[in-house]
């Protein structure tokens, strides 16, 4: 525990000095502002693009448009940015040999993985949370309608999916000594889950539901209970993958 805390401090210093915190903060704040902005601009942009001769009247943007943009950004770009940033987290330390010294000094190997995982999770929670609050504020101000009754419900599945996705990235980074292994493995897993969605029977159990059904959750057209099985699978999978990562790392030559 003591060692995990020590290594946790080291990981934060690394995240800070390697500009990872800065990148995540800037990108997710941009996401937070961009969602309501795009929703607000959309009719005007369409008008500019198509000219004023447009016969049909464009519908006024709603809060739902803002949230649609938000979940598109976070679950399609944000989560991959996270994967990219933590992609070399383990592999880079193994290939450069920086851990040899620390492990010989008494750093338990599980502490390396646990600290890296927790630091990534905290960064994810802060990033997504901050981004959410910004969108929430602007959306409430610009679109005070009743189109998004369950705003506070829909964000939790995204957070949960992050726990799973970060575990996959760390596993990839531990298995293969390449800087982009973590990202590639995570992308492959994401693609695999997307393919799995074509099987109707597993849709409710597929972790991917946690980042695809958010808009329906916001609008209230889908109940959270519908994706509870997927939430369960995601949490269990995250824990199992984290366990496998530690097991693999315990057997790795540093």
């Amino acid at each position: 525990m003591q060692a995990t805390m020590t290594f946790w401090h080291k990981e934060w210093l690394a995240a800070w000095r390697n500009y990872h915190v800065l990148i995540l903060a800037v990108v997710f704040v941009i996401f937070g502002i961009e969602a309501p902005l795009m929703a607000k601009l959309m009719p005007d942009l369409m008008k500019l693009a198509l000219g004023n001769q447009l016969p049909i009247k464009l519908p006024q943007p709603t809060s739902s448009d803002s949230w649609q943009q938000f979940y598109k950004n976070t679950s399609q770009i944000g989560i991959f940015l996270l994967a990219l940033i933590f992609s070399g987290s383990v592999s880079q330390e193994v290939s450069s040999g920086t851990l040899v010294n620390l492990v010989t000094k008494g750093l338990p190997r599980y502490a390396v993985i646990m600290a890296k995982y927790l630091v990534a999770v905290v960064q994810w929670v802060i990033a997504i949370g901050g981004s959410f609050l910004i969108t929430w504020g602007y959306t409430a101000y610009y679109f005070p309608d009743d189109k998004s009754p369950h705003v506070w419900l829909a964000i939790w599945p995204v957070l949960l999916f992050g726990l799973f996705f970060i575990a996959v990235v760390l596993l990839g980074s531990t298995l293969i000594n390449s800087n982009y292994a973590g990202f590639l493995v995570a992308a492959l897993v994401f693609a695999g889950l997307a393919l799995l969605n074509y099987v109707k029977a597993v849709k409710r159990w597929n972790p991917l539901a946690l980042v695809t059904d958010n808009l329906d959750l916001v609008r209230g057209t889908e109940k959270i209970t519908h994706i509870l099985p997927a939430c369960g699978v995601t949490v269990v999978a995250a824990l199992v993958i984290l366990g496998v990562t530690i097991w693999t790392f315990n057997r790795k030559r540093l």
Binding site: T6, L13, A14, L102
Partner: peptide, 21 residues
């Protein structure tokens, strides 16, 4: 070939080592 964290100062690195021991 000792490998270090380049983003740390020697003092920070030694503090990390010391805590671990």
């Amino acid at each position: 070939v000792p490998a270090y964290y380049g983003y740390m100062t020697p003092t920070e690195y030694l503090t990390l080592c010391g805590r671990l021991t």
